[in-house]
Structure formats: structure tokens, C-alpha cells
């Protein structure tokens, strides 16, 4: 007996071995009665076999010289963490100093950094009400926030840094609302991104760093938007996340 109708998703799930044994049998019974669907499934399986026939031999190819050698100095477990942090802070401070020197003339919207830090302090520790709309409804979240701040947004992807989207909310900026995204990693550490439309009086500005009350903030302005990403981590780690956000928004 068929428990419930077979969906398109389940046909693919059958092809890719994502179904449990019982459901597999039900799909097989269904395919016997639906030859057209059976042909589709057969073709999908043939596609997968073709990919393997075409490209599996790459697995046997010797690696190009040097490909398997680590390219950058590794943060070995033997190096005391404090020493690593000190080096990173120095590097960060130097690059930050040059960064500042190059952009002394730009208007510095420090308020975006302090608003982001305050919002981070308020919302990041929240467990139950951290966000208004959670990541499951990302599409709705992004279109709602885009509409409210008047600029098309996206929730940047931060998986490379180990963070995934928790959700977002609307927060106040000086004269108009700002969009606010929250991310979390597996250890439960959170970072938050504050985005608002760029004011007409503001100029483009490259990355700046500010640290207040244990919260680090990188903030910058492009043609359309002002951004501030806040988190409790080393400056170097936060910088990497800021750059991921920049590159995602440039897509």
C-alpha cells in the first residue's frame, strides 16, 4: 500500500539513495505503474553514471607538484595562542594604521560602528528572541529588509569562516531603519552585520576597525550601503569575515 503520493523530490531522493528502505520499495512500486516517470528516473541514474565514467579517472592522476604542500604558515597547536594573537594584533594594527592614513579625508561615520556594537551587545546574547525572522525564511527576511531600507540586500554567505545565518531584524539607524543579520558558528559564537543605505553626505570608505567594550567592529561604505560587522574575536578573524562580506556583496 502506498502511504502517500510520491513527490518530485522523492524521485530524486530515490536516484540519490536518500530514501529509507520502506519508501524505496514504494517508489519502485510507483515506477512500475508509471512508465514515463520510470524513464525519467532511468535517465537521471544514467546522468550520474556518465559523470563517473567521464571524471573518475581524475582521482588516479598524480597530483601536480607541490599541490599537497601547505602554502601558508600554519598556526601550529604548539605555538602558544597568546603569541599568535600578539603577532596578529601587530599585523592588524599596522595594516589598520596604513588604512587610516590613506583615507583621512573621508567623513568617518563612527556612528555606524557604535550602533552596530550596541546592537551586538543587546541582541547577540539573546537565546529566544535574537532575531525577528529566522534563517528558514531567509528569502522573506531579505526582501522585507531590502524594502524597508530601500536598497536591494542579501544575507552574505559566511560558511567559509564557519558561520551560518541565524536570521535578522530591523533596527534603528540615525534617520532611517537599518538591516541587521546575525550569524552563529558551531561553538555558539555570534557575529552580527549591520547594514543601512549610504547617506548622501557620506563618501565611500574602505575598512576601518574599532573596538569597544569587548566588541570588535569593522565598518566601511560602498556606493550604496554602509556596513558594520561586529563580533567578539581577534581583529584578524573579524577582518577575514569582513572581507568575505565584501566579496559576497560584490557578486
Amino acid at each position: 500500500m502506498m502511504g502517500y503520493p510520491i513527490s518530485e523530490e522523492e524521485l530524486h531522493g530515490y536516484v540519490d539513495g536518500e530514501l529509507d528502505a520502506e519508501r524505496r520499495l514504494e517508489v519502485e512500486a510507483y515506477l512500475k505503474d508509471h512508465p514515463e516517470e520510470a524513464v525519467r528516473v532511468r535517465d537521471f541514474l544514467a546522468q550520474n553514471r556518465a559523470f563517473h565514467a567521464l571524471y573518475d579517472s581524475v582521482l588516479e592522476e598524480p597530483l601536480p607538484r607541490g599541490m599537497a604542500q601547505p602554502k601558508q604558515p600554519q598556526f601550529d597547536v604548539w605555538v602558544p595562542r597568546a603569541a599568535v594573537a600578539a603577532v596578529l594584533l601587530t599585523v592588524g594594527a599596522i595594516s589598520g594604521w596604513f588604512g587610516n592614513a590613506a583615507f583621512q579625508e573621508a567623513t568617518v561615520p563612527t556612528n555606524i560602528a557604535s550602533r552596530a556594537a550596541v546592537a551586538h551587545a543587546v541582541y547577540a546574547p539573546e537565546t529566544r528572541h535574537a532575531v525577528e525572522v529566522d534563517a528558514i525564511n531567509e528569502e522573506h527576511l531579505v526582501s522585507w529588509l531590502s524594502k524597508r531600507i530601500g536598497v536591494t540586500l542579501k544575507a552574505p554567505k559566511l560558511g567559509e569562516a564557519g558561520y551560518s545565518l541565524v536570521g535578522g531584524r530591523l533596527v534603528p539607524a540615525s534617520s532611517a531603519p537599518a538591516a541587521y543579520f546575525m550569524y552563529e558558528n558551531r561553538d555558539g559564537n555570534r557575529i552580527t552585520l549591520y547594514v543601512r543605505a549610504r547617506y548622501q553626505t557620506e563618501k565611500k570608505m574602505s575598512l576601518r576597525y574599532r573596538y569597544q567594550n569587548g566588541i570588535g567592529v569593522f565598518y566601511w561604505l560602498d556606493e550604496r550601503l554602509g556596513y558594520a560587522v561586529a563580533g567578539e574575536m581577534t581583529q584578524q578573524e573579524l577582518l577575514l569575515i569582513a572581507k568575505l562580506i565584501q566579496s559576497d556583496f560584490n557578486d
Binding site: 602554502k71 600554519q74 567559509e160
Partner: peptide, 18 residues
């Protein structure tokens, strides 16, 4: 090669167990 360079540079961000 690009991907590996990026991975080595970000390796400290990878969380063991993930």
C-alpha cells in the same frame, strides 16, 4: 590551487568535528 591556498589561510577557522 586557489581553493587550497584559501583553505590553508583559513584553516584556523575550521572547527574540528565539523
Amino acid at each position: 590551487q586557489d581553493c587550497l591556498e584559501r583553505a590553508w589561510g583559513r584553516f584556523h577557522l575550521w572547527q574540528p568535528g565539523s
